[in-house]
Structure formats: structure tokens, C-alpha cells
Amino acid sequence: MRMQGIVGLTFLAFVVQSTIVPWIIPGEFAGRIVPHFTLAVVLFAAMYHSRHSALLLGAGFGLLQDVVFRGHLLGLHAYAMALIGYLFGLLLERRRSTMMMALVVVAFGTLLYELALYYVYKVFQFTQESLSWALVDHILPSLFLQLAFALAVYIPLRRWFQNLAMNRYSKKEPE
């Protein structure tokens, strides 16, 4: 039941980032500000729930992204998102992360994700642009949107995930 809630929420983030956000972004920034809301939810799951749920969410929704918007490669988003979710989960799962910490994690996670995408596409020669251009063109502008989103959902998501994690531990103890 609870895991279903998280999956539903991530799916909502996925749908919103591919349908509503393109309409909100003004024309001159279209294609430059790219939302990665599912990644933000995955990172929150890594920080406040568990690294395993982050791994599963990342792999599942990355694969969904890969399949639905099937372009050049299959499996890239799934691999990148799962790996980043798991890594940050490994580092921060047991700590009580503050809001600043959460924002920094989301920023670094997104940066890492974008760099991974860039280098894989570069290696397979689907893009010819230079790294510095890619940074200025879309990686940094997208980061601002990502941070704004993370800030907006920080309190409800943290509360929710921590409740879920707490319930899980309290259930396990009596057994």
C-alpha cells in the first residue's frame, strides 16, 4: 500500500514533467530548461526512506522514460537514475539530512545525472556539442528549476518518507 503511494507520486511527477512543465517554460527557454522531477523524488527517497527503494524507483521510472520517449538509446536513464539514487542512499540513508543538505544533494544528483547523460550520448556520437556549451545551454538553467521544485516539495515529501520509514522500523522491531 505505502510503496504504491510512492510509485503513484513518482508517476505523477513523471507525467507533470513531460506535459505541464513544457507549457509553463517561456518560449525562449524551451529546450533549455529541462525538468528532472522524477530524479528529485528518487533522491528524496534515497535520503529519507531507503537506498533500495531509491534504486527500484530510479530503475523503474528511468526505464519508463526510456521506453515512452524511445529515441537513440534504451536503458540509459534507467541505469543513471538507479545508480545515482543508490549511491546517495548509501551515503546519506542513516543521517538526518537538513534542508540545506537536501538541496545540495538534489543539485549534485542532478548535475551528476546530466553529466552522465551528456557523456554517454557523446561517446555514442549522438551529440557533437562541447561540454562547456552544454553546461551553459541547458544543464545550469535546468538546475534552477530542479532546485525550485525540490524546495517546493521538501516539507511534504520529507514528512511522508520519514513516516513511512518510521512505520517500517516500528513494525520490524516487535517481530
Binding site: G31, V34, Q65, F69, R70, E114, L117, Y121
Partner: peptide, 13 residues
């Protein structure tokens, strides 16, 4: 009905 959120693969559905 949707736009891909991937800067290197801007497909539309």
C-alpha cells in the same frame, strides 16, 4: 500529448 524531458532526445508523443 507529451514532450520528452531529455535535452539530447527531444522526442514528442
Amino acid at each position: 500529448i507529451a514532450v520528452s524531458p531529455d535535452p539530447y532526445n527531444q522526442t514528442l508523443t
